[in-house]
């Protein structure tokens, strides 16, 4: 709308340079002042944001030099925000590697050690006890999540129950990636679905699309005591996320792309978890796929998970 407050007289003389116009002008000024006051919190919020951060390009468009600048800036911000020296690296997928994960439901006891390890490894918000893994206590006799409970808090394992940890299934055909309007999430060559936390607009369409409740939104900035921050961080994985963006399990790519086992596997006291390279015929994961009767969650949806479940008996 035009901001000119002096309409000419041509309009049937209804509007003129009279007291009414002055009043209207005053009201407009008042309105603008009220608006400025109303949206003041945004000014405060933007003062925290650097121009570089605002204009940062998509991960895939960053040239190596630019990426180094971004990583350096993020490391600097970690010092400013948390007072800790962290190392944020860009870990790339390796040729000939495609990750797969299998979980033995016969020996999982539901101790949530995996969820806890994830919580610590991936710099999750402490107050909400966030984790990429949700463990369900299920009734024996079927895989019916309607009879499952993720909030149990009693000694495990219970006799008539079995336990089903669920995390990102790193689908071969990931609905979350398809729906993202800005390509802020994508599947990498080694099968890991990642999020560029500095590109995501926070529309949460992926969270609606995921059939496995694998995605999490940062309803606020994660709060972690400085001394508890895991300083070994990946740009696409466990660096402390900004508020208002999506995050998800990355099979600990900052570990696994260096050849290490994911944190949830190391924490498992029963050895229910098997991780490895699906393209290596000698790998443990391949042995499981070839010798156990494995299944995937919600196979009928055609998402082709790379996370497998199996029973011993």
């Amino acid at each position: 709308m035009s901001t000119d407050s002096k309409p000419p007289k041509h309009d049937s003389g209804k509007i003129g340079f009279d007291r009414r116009t002055a009043l209207k002008g005053g009201a407009a000024m008042l309105g603008m002042a009220a608006l400025a006051k109303a949206i003041a919190p945004i000014t405060e919020w933007t003062s925290d944001m650097s121009v570089d951060e605002f204009l940062q390009k998509h991960y895939k468009e960053l040239k190596p030099g630019e990426l180094q600048t971004v990583l350096a800036r993020l490391e600097r911000e970690a010092v400013e925000d948390h007072g800790v020296d962290v190392s944020i690296n860009d870990y790339r997928p390796k040729e000939g590697v495609k990750f797969g994960y299998a979980l033995n439901l016969s020996i999982c006891i539901g101790c949530r050690k995996c969820a806890e390890a994830c919580h610590i490894e991936n710099n999750h918000d402490r107050e909400t006890n966030q984790s990429y893994i949700r463990v369900f206590e299920m009734e024996k006799g079927g895989i019916d999540f309607e009879k499952g409970d993720a909030n149990y808090n009693h000694p495990v394992p219970q006799k008539d129950k079995f336990y089903m940890p669920v995390q990102c299934q790193q689908c071969e055909n990931p609905p979350c990636v398809h729906v993202c309007p800005v390509e802020a999430t994508w599947k990498e060559q080694d099968g890991i679905v990642v999020v560029d936390y500095n590109w995501c607009i926070g529309c949460r369409y992926c969270e609606a699309a995921c059939p496995y409740h694998a995605r999490r939104f940062n309803w606020k900035k994660p709060e972690i005591p400085s001394q508890d921050i895991n300083p070994d961080q990946g740009y696409l994985s466990n660096r402390v996320r900004p508020a208002g963006v999506m995050e998800k399990c990355t099979f600990c790519l900052h570990r696994t792309r260096k050849g290490k086992l994911p944190a949830c596997l190391e924490a498992c006291p029963t050895g229910a978890r098997v991780f490895g390279n699906l393209l290596d015929p000698e790998s443990e994961i391949r042995w499981v796929l070839e010798n156990k009767r494995v299944f995937v969650l919600k196979e009928e949806l055609g998402t082709k998970p790379q996370f497998f479940y199996f029973f011993d008996e």
Partner: peptide
């Protein structure tokens, strides 16, 4: 507008 400004500043929490 004021509520939205607060939501942006404090996060969707």
């Amino acid at each position: 507008a004021n509520a939205w400004a607060n939501q942006v500043a404090n996060g969707m929490q």
